[in-house]
Design a protein around this nucleic acid. Structure first.
Lengths: 158, 158
DNA sequence: CAAACTCGGATGAATGTTGTCCGAGTTTAA
DNA sequence: TTAAACTCGGACAACATTCATCCGAGTTTG
């Protein structure tokens, strides 16, 4: 899986704390990662409609909807793409004992097994929202952590 | 996900039908795929202990245990490796507001979310065995399909 | 004992991911 | 009005992983 997913999720959680546009450069410095490459991930989020990009002097990225309406699955799909990880090449239709196309109308047993597993994975990710993540972080760390992040994003001092 | 997983699972289902060693070249011709590359996948299955390689004139690959004791997850792990798809780089410990190492003893909320989803995926694959796949194929296709494969693997005519 | 057939690891091309850059557009302030 | 500064956006290389191939080591068989 693309490593940019981790960055994107962290950025969405951070954006939860502030209602103002935050530049990609600021998010990059917060996490100490490559600014140019994180911009690429944010563009993907914008294309997927999860964040809205604002140009100009005080521009940046803002969430387009409430954090409890954005699931982790939404972010993963935005970065990785909607196509499934397992692709069936229908090798049962090849070779000397190839199955007839009529018998291949339904997906084969192997394909269905992979699809079911991927569906379980997807459902698990769909059940967790960005709001859930922010709440968990707030619960498990010092109460002043999130406000500190919020203040830093508005006025970065580094 | 590596495309070789599909080939490996198909090969395991095919090996279910015959108790004799089957050369990689025969399996490759059955599915009309690259002989050299399928050999690589079979080597991975052998390293994982799912199949046993027999050398010499009438050698090949045989399953090491009953088909109902080999799960699809076993095959996926043998090909793809045991490491999880999502890797956490702990970016919460980097940047100007880095979390202290003491507070990072437990995995972060994002990491745990990804781990849980991957666990669901793994459990789904663990619940399906090669014997299940063979039974399903036998049920959903003509009854003479599997015997035909068995006969062809013993004496390939192509 | 030799010949033929098997697997096994080492070697190269193709594809996708990671990382970087500069131009188009917008807001702001003068 | 105008110009400057700051933002995003897509186009451009470097790296890693996957895909594909080849030939040598070892074993069985006649």
């Amino acid at each position: 899986m693309s490593g940019g997913v981790e960055w994107a999720v962290h950025c969405c959680v951070a954006l939860t704390e502030v209602g103002r546009p935050v530049p990609a450069a600021t998010l990059a410095r917060l996490h100490d990662v490559s600014m140019s490459y994180l911009a690429k991930q944010m563009q993907a989020l914008a294309r997927a409609g999860l964040v809205r990009s604002v140009q100009g002097k005080s521009g940046g990225y803002v969430l387009t909807r409430a954090a409890d309406l954005i699931s982790v699955l939404d972010i993963v799909i935005a970065i990785e793409g909607p196509e499934p990880q397992f692709v069936c090449t229908e090798i049962r239709q090849r070779g000397p004992l190839a199955a007839s196309p009529e018998e291949c109308l339904r997906a084969c047993a192997i394909h269905r097994t992979m699809l079911a597993a991927e569906q379980a994975w997807r459902e698990s990710l769909r059940g967790v929202t960005v709001a859930d993540l922010a709440a968990t972080v707030d619960r498990e760390s010092s109460p002043e952590v999130l406000p500190a992040i919020r203040a830093w994003l508005i006025a970065p001092s580094d």
